[in-house]
């Protein structure tokens, strides 16, 4: 069978589909001061998965605000700097109108994902962190 660390090199998704892979990638991102990108990516996935049963509406609003506050509001944050102004406006607008949609962070997540795919993920595969592990 293919060892997990070889699978991680196939695609970002195979890496993010494995707990050990996530842990190692996070360690690398932390050294590069951009672990927030990974947290944001998972927060967006978790938000989308929140089910719409009763009593959840308040939780959704609270969570959407928490995600916005932690990752997007501060323009100097690593996540905020990678997200397009129009995307940020869209999210802010959803929050202000309390129009909480499961897909409201999808575009922002896609932008961060592209950034990881084109930048941090290839760097990770070449990093000492990964090579030593492998």
């Amino acid at each position: 069978p293919t060892p997990p660390y070889l699978k991680w090199a196939e695609s970002l998704h195979s890496l993010l589909d494995d707990q050990d892979g996530i842990q190692l990638f996070r360690k690398f991102l932390k050294q590069e001061d951009c672990a927030d990108m990974l947290d944001f990516w998972f927060a967006c996935s978790g938000f989308r998965k929140l089910e719409a049963h009763e009593g959840n509406e308040e939780k959704k609003v609270k969570l959407a605000k928490a995600i916005y506050k932690k990752f997007i509001l501060d323009n100097n944050g690593i996540v905020s700097r990678q997200i397009k102004p129009a995307t940020k406006c869209f999210i802010k607008d959803c929050l202000m109108r309390r129009h909480i949609d499961p897909a409201m962070f999808d575009q922002a997540q896609a932008e961060i994902q592209t950034m990881m795919e084109e930048n941090t993920y290839p760097l990770f595969l070449k990093s000492d962190t990964y090579l030593e592990y492998a």
Binding site: D18, Q19, I22, G46, F47, K49, K70
Partner: peptide, 20 residues
């Protein structure tokens, strides 16, 4: 503030793959 952080952590964990 704590509960906001907890909520965020819970959300992040919920999206992670389960241990195989």
């Amino acid at each position: 503030i704590d509960s906001e952080d907890d909520l965020l952590q819970e959300c992040i964990s919920s999206a992670m793959p389960k241990k195989k």
